[in-house]
């Protein structure tokens, strides 16, 4: 399990990374935290011609609030985001979700951008960014662009980035104070990719009706899924048990799970509905209505 021969180049900044990608073409690969790419290389399932290491690229590890959004640099380590007060204050779902991403040692090295660029549909961060309507910051030879999450994730391990583009960060809308959040994850073991994971963020107006709801699931399709149908059921009404059930019942129609050795497709479909129900219940309990 030794990686195949590869060339190596270290990029000092994003522009240099883009230049290197342009120079080496589509067989080059950006190396971030390495928690997904290096195992694939050790199995010789990935064999890039050149690794472009952006671990020392300047200015990619920020975690800050900007114009009502949380902006996280692509190279921010998952563990740093998990323990960041800034991140927790703006998007309290983040630390909860990150605790399910591998183990501390993986998160010490693994980056937010690495997970989003790798685009594993079973991974937690892509689902979170999709569910919250986040935007991906992408830089290429022609400059920077912002891509909405639902336009960014195109399929298993496939994104809207061109070969010569680098993911530089992600922008997540700040959740209003009092938002209740919850993650429900069904995994065979702690730290594994979930069979199914769901995430909920919900905010209630003073009259107790839902004025913000965000729902997402991972492990249920070739891309992370925002559950618009379930959100629509709840929007503007009181989140009663019946309303939660009605929302959960729409889930099966919004997803396209496939089976694998851990669970057949039907099981995933059933569990997605169940976990949405559970996540909603918990998130609602955690909401705080401003006095």
């Amino acid at each position: 399990m030794k990686p195949p021969p590869v060339k190596y180049a270290r990029a000092g900044d994003v522009a240099e990374a883009v230049a290197l990608l342009t120079e080496h073409g589509s067989d080059a690969k950006v190396l971030a935290g390495g928690q997904s790419l290096i195992p694939l290389m050790n199995f010789r399932l990935a064999r890039p011609s050149v690794l472009i290491d952006i671990n020392r690229a300047a200015g990619l590890d920020g975690i800050r609030v900007e114009n009502g959004s949380l902006v996280i640099g692509a190279m921010a380590r998952q563990r740093d985001v998990e323990t960041s007060d800034v991140a927790a204050g703006a998007v309290p779902l983040l630390p909860q979700v990150l605790r399910h991403v591998g183990h501390v040692t993986n998160r010490n090295r693994g980056t937010v951008g690495g997970s989003l660029a790798h685009a594993d549909p079973a991974a937690e961060l892509p689902a979170l960014v999709t569910g919250l309507g986040g935007e991906l910051l992408v830089q290429g030879p022609g400059g920077s662009r912002l891509v909405a999450a639902e336009d960014y994730f195109l399929g298993t391990f496939t994104t809207a980035m061109e070969f010569d583009e680098v993911l530089t960060g992600v922008r997540l809308p700040r959740l209003p104070a009092g938002t209740g959040v919850a993650v429900e994850e069904l995994a065979r073991r702690h730290g594994d990719f979930a069979i199914v994971a769901t995430m909920a963020a919900i905010h209630l107006a003073a009259d107790g009706t839902v004025d913000l709801v965000r729902l997402a699931a991972s492990g249920v399709a070739s891309v992370p899924v925002r559950l618009h149908g379930a959100e629509a059921v709840l929007a503007g009404i009181a989140p009663t048990a019946e309303a939660i059930d009605a929302a959960a019942e729409t889930v099966a129609g919004s997803i396209k799970p496939t089976g694998d050795v851990h669970a057949p497709a039907d099981y995933r479909r059933d569990m997605a509905g169940l976990l949405v129900r559970r996540a909603l219940r918990t998130a609602i309990q955690r909401t705080e209505v401003a006095a």
């Binding site: 199995f43 073991r189 702690h190 730290g191 594994d192 990719f193 050795v261 851990h262």
Partner: peptide
């Protein structure tokens, strides 16, 4: 509860990594 070397109908082993052959951890 966790560990299984699963073969498919073609005789391919589908659990040939620690991502799929699940040894219990301290949490289980």
């Amino acid at each position: 509860l966790l560990e299984e070397l699963i073969y498919d109908d073609e005789g391919q082993l589908r659990t040939a990594s620690f991502m799929d052959y699940l040894l219990p951890t301290a949490m289980e």
